[in-house]
Simulated scan of single mutants.
Amino acid sequence: MNQSNATPLLLRTRGMAAEIAARLRVMIDEGEMPPGARIDEKEMCAAFDVSKTPLREALKVLVSEGRVTHRQYNGYRVAAIDLDDLASTFEMLHGLETMAGELVQQRVSGTQLAAIGAKHRRMAECHNAGKRLEYFRLNQQIHQMIVDAAANPVLSTIYATLMSKVHRARGAANTDMLRWSESMEEHEAILAALDDPTHADLPQILRAHSENTAREVLAVLNRTRTDTAPARDAGMMPEVSGEPEEVAGSNQR
């Protein structure tokens, strides 16, 4: 057996699969592919200009991560979001935001304040230009920067882990957010509290912003799930790669 010829092909396939998985991961996490969306293999192969082999390898990785589900005869779908788990995660984040604000009062440095302010100004520019996706990414970075300024590595690690759990939900809701301007105003209040030498109102402002975000994200996802349920129940979703649809109601959001 001539392994010297087979190995490079295998490595190229795995390399392509990793790249496809990374690109799909971003599309899912940032809401371009919403929860419950059917993944059409033919369309994806055409979009990435690849065969089905690396695409399916990539999808297997995303299945193992919980971002994608697969059922025989029903194909691949973006995984639903567990709203009960999401609500519980947000509750934890509210407390962490408050704790971070309290610690920042005592520990934040001038250099950190300047970096957060610069990032905030970039985010405001994206808001004014209607660049929602870039705004969303900068928003996430600012929150982590504030938590990191609390100078508690355990807090930073736990916060980052929980934020990764809600990132996809926030991305899914981000395409339908009605309170974008309100969120921007809340970030202005956060920056003003940071600029205050005492930072006295920061813990309360951070918590209120976290609670408002959670309320909107959960409302949008609940509304989306309700609005799309009749189409699924009626079997109106299109087929994937020519495979027949399963009984209506399976794998729903």
Rank of each mutant, 00 (worst) to 15 (best):
E57H: 13
A58M: 03
A58P: 07
L59T: 05
K60C: 01
K60T: 07
V61G: 06
L62H: 02
L62A: 02
V63L: 00
S64Y: 01
E65P: 09
E65M: 10
G66R: 09
G66E: 06
G66D: 05
R67P: 04
V68P: 01
V68M: 05
T69E: 14
T69I: 09
T69K: 13
H70L: 08
R71W: 03
Q72G: 06
Y73Q: 11
Y73H: 11
Y73R: 15
Y73C: 01
N74Y: 08
G75H: 03
Y76H: 09
R77C: 08
R77Y: 04
A79L: 06
I81H: 00
I81Y: 00
D82Y: 02
L83T: 04
D84W: 05
D84S: 10
L86V: 00
L86N: 02
L86C: 08
A87W: 01
A87G: 06
S88H: 13
S88W: 08
T89K: 01
E91L: 09
E91D: 15
M92K: 15
L93E: 06
H94F: 14
G95W: 11
G95K: 14
G95N: 14
E97H: 15
T98F: 06
M99W: 06
M99N: 12
M99C: 07
M99K: 14
M99S: 10
M99Y: 09
G101S: 08
G101P: 07
E102I: 14
E102H: 11
E102V: 13
L103V: 05
L103H: 12
V104W: 01
V104K: 02
V104P: 00
V104A: 07
Q105G: 07
Q105L: 04
Q106T: 13
Q106K: 14
R107G: 03
V108I: 15
V108T: 13
S109I: 11
G110N: 15
G110A: 08
T111R: 14
Q112G: 10
L113F: 02
L113G: 04
L113T: 15
A114L: 10
G117L: 05
A118C: 04
A118R: 13
K119H: 10
K119C: 10
K119G: 10
H120E: 05
H120K: 05
H120W: 12
R121G: 05
R122I: 04
R122A: 12
M123K: 14
M123G: 08
A124T: 11
C126R: 14
H127W: 10
H127C: 05
H127K: 08
H127F: 15
N128L: 11
